[in-house]
Amino acid sequence: MSDNDFQSIFDSDEDGLLDTPAKAPKLTSSDRLERSFLEIIEFYREHRRIPRSDTSEIAERKLGARLDGILANENKIAALNDLDEFGLLHEPEAPASLDDLLGGDDFGLLDDDSGLLDTSDLPARARRIDPNEVAQRVKSSDFGAFEPLFRQKHEELRAGLSKLVSFGAAGGQRAIKEGGFFVLSGVMLFVAEITEPKAAPGVRTRYKPRTRTVFENGTESNLYRRSLAGQLYENGGLAVVPATFEELLADDEATGYIYVLRSLSDDPQIQEVPDLHKIGFSRGPVEKRIAHAQSEATYLMAPVEIVASYRTYNLKISALEHLLHRVFSEKRLRLSQVGKDGRVYEPSEWYSVPLKMVNQAIDLITSGDIVDYEYDAEARELRLRP
């Protein structure tokens, strides 16, 4: 075949079938990042939820792990913001109550029992203090209108018509309502008013109700309701309730025990950990649960001592477990042990946290206020989330 014959073939190729395909441009790291995120976007568009990194569905698990990696990297978040049409890269609004947390679990966190959800390696978020949250006490201009109410409440306490219970037992933050009486650092206070700001149309915000709190010493304050709750928790506050008040109702269902243990191990690497406690959950008696502690890795293969045990009612044990472990995740014990069977174990549910803070966290969980708190490991105290 002559050169002219070849040329006539090329000339007759009107559809370009014989054209040499253009070489695809080389993908940059930015291109790959965008493509990988667009796959997550498509998953959300189809399923109306984010992909989970703990599912047995391999394809979804891969996307979920990819999203976790993006969320842990501020540079990647900034680079992908323009593509984030569903707001997947923005921190969700904090739940206002325990019911909201349990009912809106889009991530499926409360269904996982595998321990894959440890967030201690994620970047710490700096605490921001809103100047408006710092409420000062001032002299009450109309204290005369409230003074008789305080006298009446003291009379009721003396006569046995009212009684004092711990703030947590009364319901925690949910107990702070207009007309409620509490005792803070030995001073009785009265919640005269609660104001809830209204959001502008189309503006998504988290409401932060303020109180008008009148103290029996003639002063008053406009603390946020959750800030008042925080002070009552942190200072062993009390609630004034009717004498007939019962912490448990007749139809309450016992769901198990929250327990706190101390290790009696003679292992030096365990003994040197300060304030080491195991926070666990059991549906049956704790004594039975720990009967063979010395042979179980979860108990550090050593005898344990029961420091505290709490009966729980009407509560989902697995949800409580995730909440409590999430709060103290930064101080979780990271230790590997070789068991009698020669296998390597990494015990969970052990935390280097003062017992006082554990007790306070349990109190906050049972009242439902734990969603507003986080543990400051440096200050070794629970604080209201910003």
Rank of each mutant, 00 (worst) to 15 (best):
D54M: 08
L261I: 11
H47Y: 13
L223E: 14
S318E: 13
G236P: 11
L384K: 08
T20E: 14
K316Q: 12
E91A: 07
G342I: 10
N132R: 14
E178K: 07
H322R: 13
D369R: 03
G180A: 15
A72H: 05
A319H: 10
A79K: 12
L38P: 02
I40G: 03
V241Y: 01
G218W: 11
M188H: 05
M1T: 12
S166G: 15
V273H: 00
V183G: 00
V134L: 05
K153H: 05
A379I: 05
A199K: 06
R343Q: 14
R45H: 14
T195P: 01
G342M: 05
L161K: 15
E46W: 01
P274F: 05
R128I: 15
Y345V: 04
Y313I: 07
F43A: 04
I290F: 00
R32K: 11
L38Q: 15
I279V: 15
G237Y: 02
T28L: 05
I58E: 13
T28F: 02
I258V: 14
Y373M: 01
E46A: 10
V327C: 04
N314V: 12
T55Y: 01
D100R: 01
Q173P: 01
A135Q: 08
T119R: 06
N75K: 09
V191F: 01
H90F: 02
L261F: 08
L333H: 02
Y310P: 00
E321T: 08
A229C: 07
R326A: 09
S114Q: 11
V338L: 01
S348M: 08
F245I: 13
D252N: 11
S309M: 12
R125F: 04
R158I: 14
S114M: 10
Y375F: 15
F37R: 01
R204E: 13
A377W: 01
